[in-house]
Design a protein around this nucleic acid. Structure first.
Lengths: 220, 220
DNA sequence: GGTAATTTGTCAGTGAATTGTCAGCTGGAT
DNA sequence: ATCCAGCTGACAATTCACTGACAAATTACC
C-alpha cells in the first residue's frame, strides 16, 4: 500500500513516515503544496495524508483540484485543533476522513487502513480469500483461525494481491506499491517474494500470467 | 503498439525502454534530436515520449516541425520539475500530455495507454468486440467476464486489430507495430500468430483479405 | 551498543512457456 | 488446373519465471 504524506513540518512528517513504514505502508513524502498536488495527480497512491497548511498551494485547493480532475484517491486531512470550519470545508471538498492535531499515529494508521479498505470495496478489516483470512489490523493471515507466520514483505504482497483480486497485477506495479521510491528494475526480488508466499500459503494462491504478472489463484 | 522514446540520458532511457517493453509496447529509442525528428517524421509510431532537452535539435522544435508537417502522432513530453513554462510551451506546440521528471514509470505507461486510446477514438480502456471485451488497463481479454488467457504477443495482435477495426491491416503494418525495429521481413511469424489467436478466440475473429492483410471479422 | 537471529535481496543454474522457423499443405483467384 | 498467399503442425530458439544457496540488511535481544 503506497501512501503520500503531504506535510511541511519536518518533525511531524518524520514521525508519520516512520510509523507508517513500520505499519507496512510504502510511504512517499512531499513538503510543499505544488509538489504534493502534482504527485497525487499523476501517480497512483492508495491513500493520501494531507495537511491543510502547506506552503505554495494549500491543502483544500489541492484536494479540490484532484477531485475536479476525477482523482478518487482516499484523502485523510490533518487539521489543527478547534478549526472545525476547516473540517467542514475539507469534507465538502471531498476529504474522506480527518484527524485533529495533535494526533496519535496509531489513530492515523487505523483510519488509513479503513480508508484503503473501503476504497477497494471491502467493509471489514478481515478479508477472506479461499480458506484464508487476511487481517489488515493485526497484519496476520490465518487458516481456520490458526495464524500463519508471514514476514512483513510477504504480508504486503498477499495483501496487495487480495485487494486487487480479479485482475492481473504486473511485477512493476507490485514493485512500486510495496517498496518506497524507485527500485532496481532488473531484480528478481518480486519473483523470489512470490515464491516465498507460495511456500507458506500453497502454490496455487498466486497464479503466474507469464509475460503479464500475477493474479490471485482461482477460488481465492 | 510501437513507441518512440527520444531521450539522451542513458539511464532514464533504459528504464523507460525496459519498463515499456515489459508493459507490452514495442519500443524504439533515439538519443539525439535530429534522429528523433527523422524517425518520427518517416515512420508510424503509435505514440512518442519526447524529452525536451535533446542534443542537436530540441524537443519543442521537433514537435513543432512534426505538427506543421501534419503529423498527428500523440506526444508525451518529459520535462524537468518546476519548468512550468516549458510545459505551457509544449502544450502550445501540440503536445498531448506531459510528465515531470523524476517520474514513476507506471505513470508514463498509464498516460501512454490513454493517449493511444484517445488517438484511436475510444473513450474507455475497455473495448467490446463481439462477445469479447478487451481491457487495455489490465491487459486481459474476456468473454462474459470470464478471462481468456492470451500470451503477450497474441494480446498485442488482437489489441492492434481492435484499435483499428473497420479497415484492412497489412502484414507489414502488423509487424511494424507489434515488433521493434529489428524484424525479419520474410518471415511468416504474423501468419502463425494470427493462427494462434484464431485458435483461442474462434476462427472468425480475424478475417483474411488475401493479398492485402487482415480485418476483424464481421460482427466483431 | 554489540551480537545473534531473522528477513530480504542477489545470483546462478534450471525448467518451462512462448515465440519464431521451417516444410509441407490448403484453398481461393484466375 | 495451376499458382501462390496463407495455414498448420512440429521443432528449435528464446525468453521468462522459479529455485536454492549465499550475502546483505534489518530487527530483536541481551
Amino acid at each position: 500500500m503506497r501512501i503520500l504524506v503531504a506535510e511541511d513540518d519536518d518533525r511531524i512528517a518524520e514521525t508519520l513516515v516512520s510509523a507508517l513504514s513500520k505499519a507496512g505502508f510504502a510511504v512517499d513524502r512531499e513538503r510543499d503544496g505544488e509538489s504534493a498536488w502534482y504527485r497525487g495527480d499523476s501517480e497512483n497512491f492508495d491513500a493520501v495524508v494531507l495537511d491543510l497548511g502547506l506552503p505554495q498551494m494549500d491543502g483544500l485547493t489541492i484536494l479540490k483540484r484532484w477531485r475536479s480532475a476525477g482523482r478518487t484517491v482516499p484523502v485523510l486531512i490533518l487539521t489543527a485543533r478547534g478549526q472545525w470550519e476547516e473540517r467542514v470545508d475539507g469534507i465538502e471538498a471531498g476529504a474522506d476522513d480527518y484527524v485533529v492535531k495533535p494526533f496519535h499515529v496509531l489513530e492515523i494508521i487505523a483510519r488509513l487502513r479503513a480508508l484503503v479498505r473501503r476504497a477497494s470495496g471491502h467493509a471489514s478489516s478481515r478479508i477472506m480469500f479461499g480458506p484464508y483470512q487476511l487481517d489488515m489490523r493485526t497484519m496476520q493471515v490465518s487458516a481456520d483461525g490458526l495464524p500463519i507466520e508471514l514476514t512483513p514483505q510477504e504480508f504486503k504482497l498477499i495483501a496487495y494481491m487480495v485487494h486487487h483480486r480479479g485482475r492481473v497485477v504486473s511485477q512493476l506495479e507490485i514493485t512500486e506499491h510495496i517498496y518506497s521510491q524507485d527500485y532496481e528494475r532488473d531484480s528478481n526480488a518480486v519473483e523470489v517474494l512470490v515464491g516465498r508466499v507460495r511456500k507458506r500459503l500453497g502454490k496455487d494462491v498466486i497464479k503466474t500470467r507469464r509475460g503479464f504478472g500475477y493474479t490471485l489463484g482461482d477460488g481465492f
